[in-house]
Every structure is written in structure tokens, then in C-alpha cells.
Design a protein around this nucleic acid. Structure first.
Length: 302
RNA sequence: GGGGAGAUUCCAGAGUGGCUAAAUGGGGCAGACUGUAAAUCUGUUGGGCGACCUUCGGAGGUUCGAAUCCUUCUCUCCCCA
């Protein structure tokens, strides 16, 4: 497997598909939002990029669930392994490509994650407890990393559910899966300032190309604004705009900033991966697509 | 032409004599994060390691001490002509 990663607006897909065309690859998308059908413009899902010189490049984990459906880390890892197996069975090269750091890492480092079903009995028992009590309980089950674990009731409940399951069925947590060791991990690098410019430019285009209408369509299909806002960024801000909670100018300005900040968080994650011993080969974003692909192909031959 | 308001650290915006390198918010920067991750959360933000040094439009003054008071200059905004 080859991995291609990078923050948003750095042109990962074009490189991955072009690479796939030259080495018989298939793409596995590692993007937490492109899994949703109909969320296209806002997620930068451009299926035309999967056609290289008249040849369709097979892709996986894009358009696999409807908006509103739960899709989490476990689902991703599970689906990713399945896609990987399929691609290998075709005799092709899996190319994992995306910007969702947690998702990428769950595969690269083979996080042991098992399917943890809803535990209604447990939830009923926890029902009367306060958020503080729940947090205390969770603290006994696992090492809390920061407030993130204990900010919302929903989150703490799920965490307790998972930890309880792990405690009760330790044998299921054993990861039988053979770790997929990527041949190489490539990252696309631009200066932060350049990334910001690219994001702003891209946002203008998205707004001109029907992003607002796209979100409206999702609303029309019955997805709540509350749900939409949890998808963050374009979906959150456009949802607020559609509800008249934001002017058009505020939509542009605030969303733009939010995406800039997101790109920063992504790079923080990639740096963290490197600190944890994952080596990433950075490709200069200003090179042409062909140059980057050539660079990748050359480095794979060595 | 007449009258009024104002110029504060990247931005907005408090601060009206010592407790002020200066509230707060935004932005920036750095970070945490194995089940919402495009989420959620934390730290930091004039310079220097430091006794210290340079900041609140410019210049001058009052005072033991000024972003805060006085004089003057420059610029901006509003109202009336």
C-alpha cells in the first residue's frame, strides 16, 4: 500500500489518481466526509478526477452511506481493510489517500478497534447519573486525554460503553488483523500562507458552483440542521446561512477562517504522526502533478 | 466655512494619574486527541533567559510617576453650511 496525505486544498486526489493510472492502483479514500452520498461540492469530491486519460480509476469508500447515517472510526477501519483485500485480490496496488489524520493512522498503525454494539442495559443504568459522575466513572476505566472526553454526555456515554465492552470481552479486542505496512507515505507540502490562499480561492468557486444549493438539497432530503452542523465546515456554516443565522458575507468570512484553522489542525496531526515514528516523504506542492507522480514512482523503485 | 467625536499592542475594542506590557473578543502561532475527528479541547501572543529594554498618532510640557492631565501639530470620522 502507498499512502498519500496532506491538508485540505493541496490536490491529493489528482496525484493519487494519476499515480494509480501509472502503476495499476486503486484509491481508498481516507476522508471522513466523502463517504456521504450527495455531499460533493462541500467535501471537494470531484469524481471526474477519477478519470485519467479516458481510463476510470477504481475508488473505494466514497459515496457509501447517506447523510445522517452514523459513520465512525470503526466503520472506516473495517471498510478500509475490506477494500484493501479486494484491491489486492485484483492484483492492484492500494493507494490510501486522504486528509483525515485519525482515519489514516487507524490503518497505518493498526489501531485495535472492534465493533462495540449499543448496550441498552448499561445506558439505562447510567441514565440518572450526572455528567460529572459519568466523567468520574470514565476516568476509572481509561486514561482521559483532556476535556474532550468529558464535554458532552453523548460522548462520555459512548466512551463508557466502549471501555466496558473492552473490559468484559478482552479476547475480542485482540487484533487478529495483520498490520498493513505501507511501502511509503507521501505528503503534499505547501506553506501555510499558500494553503490559506488556495482555500479562499476554492471557497469562492464552491459558492459559485452551487454549494449552497447542495446543502439545501440535503436538507430537503430530511437531514436536520442540527445534524448538518455536526458535519462541520461548509455544511455547518451553510446550514446556519440557510437558517438566516448568518449573512452571506459572514458565511464567507467565518467559513473561510474555519477551513484555514482546519488545515492547521491537519498539519498538526501529520507532525504528530512523524513524532510518533511514522516517516512521511514530503513533496513540494508547487511541482506539477506529473513531477510529483514521477517523484513517487522513482522513489518506489529504489 | 462652522460645530462635534476620535487616533491604544496583527485587527476590533476596553482602559482616564501609580495595582498596565496594557481587560475582552477575533485572528495568528503551538499543542492534545483510538469510536462525532471537517469534531472536541488546551496553551500562547512587544523584545530579552534575566535584573531589564522599547510601546498606547507626532512633538513639547506638568508630575516622584502619564496610554491616562496640559499645549501644539498631523490625520480620520460625523453633523450643520
Amino acid at each position: 500500500m502507498i499512502v498519500i496525505l496532506g491538508p485540505t486544498a493541496t490536490g491529493k486526489t489528482a496525484i493519487a489518481t494519476r499515480l494509480a493510472a501509472t502503476i495499476n492502483g486503486e484509491i481508498i479514500s481516507a476522508d471522513s466526509r466523502q463517504v456521504f452520498r450527495g455531499m460533493d461540492i462541500g467535501t471537494g469530491k470531484d469524481l471526474s478526477e477519477y478519470m485519467v486519460d479516458e481510463t476510470p480509476i477504481p475508488y473505494h469508500l466514497i459515496d457509501i452511506v447517506d447523510p445522517g447515517t452514523e459513520y465512525s472510526l470503526f466503520n472506516f477501519q473495517h471498510d478500509c481493510y475490506r477494500a484493501y483485500d479486494e484491491i489486492v485480490a485484483h492484483g492492484n496496488m492500494p493507494i490510501l489517500c486522504g486528509g483525515t489524520g485519525l482515519y489514516l493512522e487507524s490503518v497505518i498503525r493498526a489501531y485495535p478497534i472492534v465493533e462495540v454494539p449499543m448496550n441498552e442495559a448499561l445506558r439505562t443504568r447510567l441514565q440518572p447519573l450526572s455528567l460529572d459522575q459519568l466523567s468520574e466513572m470514565l476516568a476509572k476505566l481509561k486514561k482521559l486525554h483532556n476535556h474532550t472526553d468529558t464535554e458532552s454526555r453523548e460522548r462520555v456515554l459512548r466512551a463508557i460503553e466502549i471501555e466496558t465492552f473492552y473490559r468484559d470481552y478482552p479476547q475480542k479486542v485482540e487484533n487478529s488483523r495483520k498490520v498493513i505496512e505501507p511501502m511509503a507515505i507521501f505528503g503534499i507540502y505547501f506553506d501555510r500562507e499558500v494553503i490559506r490562499q488556495r482555500i479562499t480561492q476554492r471557497l469562492k468557486e464552491r459558492l459559485e458552483n452551487g454549494m449552497i444549493e447542495e446543502v439545501q438539497r440535503i436538507v430537503d432530503r430530511g437531514v436536520s440542521h442540527e445534524r448538518l452542523q455536526k458535519y462541520g465546515l461548509e455544511y455547518k456554516y451553510v446550514s446556519l446561512y440557510l437558517q438566516n443565522k448568518l449573512s452571506y458575507d459572514a458565511l464567507f468570512e467565518e467559513l473561510n477562517i474555519a477551513i484555514h484553522q482546519f488545515a492547521k489542525r491537519q498539519t498538526t496531526w501529520f507532525r504528530r504522526m512523524e513524532k510518533n515514528g511514522i516517516s512521511i516523504v514530503w513533496l513540494d506542492g508547487s511541482w506539477s502533478i506529473d513531477e510529483k507522480v514521477q517523484k513517487i514512482v522513482n522513489s518506489l523503485k529504489i
